[in-house]
Structures are given as C-alpha cells and as structure tokens.
Design a protein around this nucleic acid. Structure first.
Length: 390
DNA sequence: CTTAGGG
DNA sequence: CCCTAAG
C-alpha cells in the first residue's frame, strides 16, 4: 500500500503496531489491518482492543510506539487525561452478544449507535484515502470476518451528521500531506510544543467558539468530553474553525444521542483542565474598547465576532470579564501619575494598564451610564449596582 | 443561545 | 478563567 497522504494519529509512525490480529478478528494482511487500525478513532481502537475490560490504562496503548518520538509518559498522561471514553459502557456485553452473531440479545441500541458511528467514521476515512475499487477490495477482505465489522452499511442507521473525528482526521491528513498546517488569520499564533498541543487538543471544548460550534454540541454543554464533542475538543485550539466546513454540514446535531444514554454513561472521569491563561495584550484591550464604543456595553457577542473574530480564544464571556476587570482597574488606578513609557514597560510585565487605556475605559463607562467604582471590593459601602442598557 | 453575576 | 441562573 502506498502510505503517502495517510497520516497516523498524532504523527505516529503508521507501522509500529503491525497487529496480526486485534479486536478479536483476524486480519488477512498486516497492511490492511494496520491501515484500518491507524485510521480508526482512538475510541474505536480501544473498544476493539479491550472488548471486556475497561480498566486498562489508555496510556499503555497510546504509548505504543511513541517512545521513539520523544514523548515521555508523563506527557502522554497529560494527553490521555483529556480523553473521555465514557460513552462506552462499563461492560461490553453488547460486543459479546454481537460476536456471537446475535444481533438482538443484550444489544443496547445506544451502544450500537455509538459504535456504528465510529464504524461510519472509519469507513469515511477509509474511502477518503483510497480509490473506490481499492476500497471495495479492502472492505471485502473484512466482510467475511466473524464480527462483520463492515457489514453495517451506512444506510442501516441514520448518519449522525456530526462533524466527527473523521472530518478532523481528514483535515489533519490534508494539512500534513501538504506539510503545512494552515493557521488562518491568526497573527499571534504561537506554536506550542507537542505536549502542549496535545493538552490543548484534549482540553475542555466548552465555550470555545461556542457560537460557531454549538450546532454539534447541542445539549451537551455539561458534558464537555462526551462523544459528540470529542471531535470538537480534538481540534487544536489555535486552529480557527473553518466556516465553510461548518456551514456545509447539512445535519446540525446528533440529537439522536438521547440524553438518557449520555447521562447514564457519563463518566466520573471529568478531566477538568483549565483553559490556558492568555494574557491580554494592549492591542486586544484596544480592540475591546473599540468594540464597546462601536456596539455599546453588553454586546459581547457582537464585539467578539467583529473585533475578535480571528482570536479563536476570547469568548464573549472572556471579553466581558476583561471589561469588568478594566473597569475595576480604571477605578482603583485613577489616581496614578506614572508617565507613559514606564506604564508601557510595566504593562509588558503584566502589572499596570496604561493610563490612556484606563481613560478610555472610564470614558466609555460614563458614556454608558455605568457608575464607576461600584464593585464589591472597591468601596466598603457597596452600593447597589444599577445598570442601564442602551 | 446570550448575558450577568458570583466564585 | 469557570459555573450558573436568567431571559
């Protein structure tokens, strides 16, 4: 097989596994199996690798072949911590009955659905990289297998329509094939080491570009790392979402994933990693102030879309919080007589906000009838905060 | 979903 | 930065 253009997960060499068998079914050829395996989502891999037990360390699998990439196990810990396989049941009775070619007994629909989604994604990847004839050939090699993995045609279930891991994989594959990961209109793009990047991939996805992505994570807010959001979470944070990619997705959510199953399966393993703290730059603050003067107070989403569109971080809430802090600072800092240059220097040290900025803050605040210095901590006789919207 | 407010 | 309650 020609490996060109086929990108193994996370830059791993595609061939270290060479599993003759895995997932309980035999592979006709190593290359078929290996390819199939590599392009499978991690969830599916694990599902197949560990049909009965849920307590095998993910690291032990993910670490496979990673040593020669200089990825330490501690870094892999960071990576694996962010993964949530909770959508899989604790016992894999479904698979057991399935393996006995019993499609009915003990086969929980939601489990099957989830698994079929994965299979679909595998098929998706599969067909996206191979000529059709070759696909059919390869698939037919698997067809006769006892588990009949590929026997489930895509019409045997309603496609979830979720963007899915497959799309992300394709995206990544393409980018890697072109040996250039495009970061669109993100000037302050700071490339992070792989460990950090992995950490970003698996961090909480919630509220990241939520206004753009919520179509796929509908009603799953509370479960940041559920299956449906996995693909969402899996994106590098620095990578702004491609609007075209989003908009051309006809089906907007995987509502079929009923809350009950998600809720019941929801894991206790909630990796609660905070978003990386990003210092606000002067430029960002200026943009924020410009946004407020443009839209007025409270139009955080508008401000975000117009002035922070290229900043994939900085959610409307972030912007609002920053304004809150600026307002507070403008109050406490209003009796400051430092000269300009000194302020700028200290700003870079993260200490003081330039006076002109605070001036604008106060200006805007008074312009919008926002009483200054009425924050809880600022004055001891904390007045009631009265807000007036335009 | 978007905002406001508290932590 | 996070979470939650309100519209």
């Amino acid at each position: 097989m020609d490996w060109t253009g086929i990108v193994p997960p996370f830059g791993m060499d595609p061939r270290p596994y060479s599993p003759e068998t895995f997932a309980g079914f035999k592979c006709h050829t190593v290359r078929t199996c290996s390819f199939f395996f590599d392009n499978m989502s991690s969830d599916t891999k694990r599902f197949l690798m560990e049909p009965r037990h849920d307590n095998i360390s993910v690291d032990s699998f993910l670490g496979l072949g990673m040593e020669n990439m200089g990825i330490t196990s501690s870094k892999m810990d960071e990576f694996s911590l962010g993964l949530d396989f909770s959508f899989l049941p604790d016992d894999f009775g479904a698979l057991d009955s399935w393996s006995k070619q019993d499609g009915e007994a003990g086969l929980k629909p939601e489990i099957l659905d989830g698994f079929l989604d994965e299979v679909e994604e595998v098929e998706h990847i599969y067909s996206s990289h191979l000529p059709e004839t070759q696909v059919k050939k390869e698939v037919s090699e698997l067809d006769g297998e006892p588990y009949g993995l590929m026997n489930f045609s895509s019409e045997s279930y309603s496609p979830s329509g979720s963007i899915g891991l497959s799309d992300w994989s394709k995206e990544t594959a393409v980018s890697h094939a072109e040996s250039s990961v495009k970061v669109k209109d993100e000037p302050e793009d700071d490339r992070k080491p792989l460990s950090t990047l992995l950490g970003s991939w698996v961090g909480r996805g919630r509220s990241r570009n939520k206004n753009l992505l919520n179509t796929r994570c509908t009603r799953l807010d509370s479960f940041s790392e559920t299956k449906s959001c996995l693909s969402y979470d899996f994106r590098p944070r620095k990578e702004p979402m491609d609007d075209t990619l989003l908009s051309d997705d006809p089906i907007t959510s995987s509502e079929s994933e009923d809350d009950i199953s998600v809720t019941t399966i929801k894991s206790k393993i909630r990796t609660d990693r905070r978003k990386h703290h990003r210092m606000w730059t002067i430029d960002e603050v200026v943009k924020l102030l410009d946004g407020i003067s443009h839209f007025g107070l409270g139009k955080w989403t508008d401000i975000k879309n117009l002035f922070f569109h290229s900043s994939s971080h900085r959610t409307p809430v972030d912007i609002r919080d920053k304004w809150r802090n600026l307002l507070k600072a403008s109050c406490s800092n209003k009796h400051n007589g430092d000269e300009e240059g000194e302020e700028k220097r200290r700003w870079s040290a993260g200490r003081t906000i330039p006076k002109d900025i605070l001036h604008r803050v106060r200006e805007l605040a008074s312009l919008h009838s926002k009483s200054l210095c009425d924050f809880h901590g600022s004055s001891r006789n904390s007045r009631k905060k009265k807000k007036k919207r335009s």
